[in-house]
Each structure stands twice: as structure tokens, then as C-alpha cells.
């Protein structure tokens, strides 16, 4: 079996195991046969109404964040880039909170108003961060981009705080949402996020070879025949669609987009033809497991899943940064 075949087999198997664990473990243990045998009405209810949508949503959000993280990293040639470190998640949050705050519901968009605003926020932040980083330092060094992301992220964070301070009755809803969670969302959220997930992933997948070329720099990619301007725009939009829709349904969940692509590259190499789909599977698995831990570790209470991901993600971030700097120093 080739290395690639092993990579896909392992990743998909891990995802299936993660789904099974996520569905069966909890305050009530659900046996696996409930899936096809609805003799136990309570178990069946918990499975289909609560656990399954939660697990699937965690999977979709994790997959979205991981694949867009992989794409941002490739595009910016920056292993520390992800929707969270770039401030894109914060932008998406601002978009979403504005919708909640003003109670906006645009005609035609209806239930999609929130994710669409969230995506617009994500895209706007992305372009601002990259534009500002380029203004500061034409060569767009790794640190420049991350620092710019932090600047924009903090600014947008304070905008959020301001809006929360001005809110009264919506307060709890917004804060709960901001902490990042996939609980109690139901099937409605899945149907809302799924089309954006498919479109965004497909856009990024279309650019898998272009991302490989861009790892050698935009100039090199240009020489290899890549229409850099158009492709870059496509990748930024694809990444923003995924980040925006993920944030819209689950709030800001950090570091999934950083950890997953990094681990995937470490294990299977950095060819984007495989990094993108593998990150998708592994991101889904990771967030399902993290969510499982978040809701069981201090049961009956629940931790926001963002706490768990940050707990894993921050050390990994530090490790990558250390390794990159050491590499640069040599």
C-alpha cells in the first residue's frame, strides 16, 4: 500500500472512530446498534436529536478550520498562520455579533444572514491583515503577518467587548457563542453551514496544485504559469467562506487550523493535493474528540470546546515557532 493510501485509510478510520466515540459516550451511554435499531426510544432520541448533530457539526467546523488553516499557511508560506492567529476568526465574530446586536435579517438571506455577515467579516479582515502586513514589510515575514493578525484581532476583540457592554438581554447569548461551542445547535445549523463548507472546500481543492507552486513564493508560482492574482483571491475567498461559516455556527475556536495541518504535514508531507483533504478529515476528528472531552471532563458541567483546543494548540504554536526560528538561525 502506498504512503498516500495509508494516510487516507488512517485518517478516515480515525474519523469514523471519533464519530462513534462522540456519539456513544456521554452521561447516557448509547450502544452502537441504536444507529439502525430504534427499539430504545430514549437512546434513539438522544442519538439523533442531540449527539449526532453535535458530532457532525463539530466535525464540519473542525474540518473547515483545518482546511482553511492549511490553505492560509500554504498561501502565506507561514506555518503559524491559521484563521485564529490571523485575526480572521475575530473578524468573522464581529460580523456575526453585528448581526445579532442589530437583529439584522436581510431579505432573501433569512437564516443565512448570520453566516453571510460572518463570512464578509472574515474576508474583510483577511484582506486588511494582508494589506497592512505588506505595507509594513514587502517581503511579508512570518512575524509581520502574525503581529498584524494580533493587532487586528485585539482591535476587533475590543469592538466585540464594546458591543457586549452595550447589550442587555442579548448578552448571555453572545458571550456563550463567543466562547466557542458546538452544543445544542441541532440539525438546523448543519443544514446552514453545510453548503458553505462544500463550496469553500471545493474552491480550495481546486487550488491544490497552485498552493504547491506558491510554497516557493509568488514569483516562482508566476514563472511556473500560475495566475497568482486570481488564484490568491480564490484561496482567500475560499478560506474566508469556511472560517466565516464555521465561526457563525460555533464561535471562535482557536488553533484547530494551526495544529491539524502542521501534524498532517509532519506525518504525510506538504503536498497540498493531500494536505488539504487529509487536514479536512483530521480536523473533523480532532474537534469531535475535543468536544467529547469538553463535555465529559467535568461532567455534568461542560467546558467550552475552545478551551480544550487552546490547551493543545498553544504549546504546539510555541513549538513550531521555536523550530522555525532555530531553522532560521542556522
Amino acid at each position: 500500500m502506498s504512503k498516500t493510501a495509508i494516510a487516507y485509510t488512517v485518517s478516515i478510520a480515525t474519523l469514523l472512530v471519533a464519530i462513534w466515540l462522540g456519539v456513544s459516550i456521554g452521561t447516557v451511554k448509547i450502544p452502537i446498534e441504536t444507529l439502525w435499531n430504534d427499539a430504545d426510544a430514549t437512546a434513539s432520541n438522544i442519538l439523533w436529536k442531540i449527539r449526532m448533530p453535535r458530532v457532525l457539526l463539530a466535525g464540519i467546523v473542525g474540518a473547515s478550520l483545518a482546511i482553511s488553516g492549511a490553505a492560509f499557511q500554504g498561501l502565506l508560506k507561514n506555518p503559524l498562520a491559521d484563521p485564529y492567529t490571523l485575526g480572521v476568526s475575530s473578524g468573522a465574530s464581529v460580523g456575526a455579533v453585528i448581526t445579532l446586536f442589530f437583529g439584522i435579517s436581510l431579505p432573501f438571506l433569512g437564516a443565512f444572514t448570520l453566516p453571510v455577515f460572518s463570512m464578509v467579516g472574515a474576508a474583510a479582515t483577511m484582506f486588511l491583515v494582508i494589506g497592512f502586513a505588506r505595507l509594513v514589510d514587502r517581503s511579508m515575514k512570518m512575524e509581520t503577518i502574525i503581529l498584524t493578525g494580533i493587532i487586528f484581532g485585539s482591535f476587533l476583540g475590543s469592538v466585540l467587548s464594546l458591543m457586549i457592554a452595550l447589550t442587555q438581554e442579548e448578552l448571555r447569548q453572545i458571550i456563550g457563542w463567543l466562547l466557542g461551542s458546538v452544543s445544542m445547535r441541532g440539525w438546523k445549523y448543519i443544514t446552514m453551514v453545510l453548503p458553505f463548507f462544500i463550496i469553500g472546500s471545493f474552491i480550495l481543492w481546486l487550488n491544490r496544485r497552485e498552493l504547491n507552486a506558491m510554497l516557493f513564493g509568488e514569483e516562482r508560482a508566476h514563472h511556473l504559469g500560475v495566475n497568482v492574482k486570481r488564484r490568491k483571491m480564490m484561496i482567500l475567498i475560499g478560506g474566508s467562506v469556511l472560517t466565516g461559516s464555521a465561526v457563525a455556527v460555533s464561535g471562535t475556536i482557536g488553533f484547530v487550523g494551526l495544529v491539524v495541518p502542521h501534524m498532517t504535514r509532519l506525518m504525510w508531507g506538504s503536498d497540498h493535493r493531500h494536505v488539504l483533504p487529509l487536514s479536512l478529515f483530521n480536523g473533523a476528528s480532532l474537534l469531535i474528540i475535543c468536544d467529547l472531552v469538553a463535555r465529559t471532563i467535568i461532567s455534568p458541567a461542560e467546558l467550552p470546546v475552545g478551551v480544550i483546543t487552546a490547551f493543545i494548540g498553544a504549546p504546539v504554536f510555541a513549538y513550531i515557532f521555536y523550530k522555525q526560528r532555530r531553522k532560521g538561525a542556522m
Binding site: Q73, N78, P79, L215, F216, G269, S270, D271
Partner: peptide, 15 residues
């Protein structure tokens, strides 16, 4: 910043 195998790198020339 990222590693590519030699063959994958040469293969990009076929883009």
C-alpha cells in the same frame, strides 16, 4: 518554509 520532496518539486515544472 515547508518541505517538498525533490520529485514533487521537479514535478511542479509540469504545472
Amino acid at each position: 518554509a515547508f518541505s517538498h520532496s525533490v520529485k514533487d518539486t521537479v514535478g511542479l515544472g509540469r504545472y
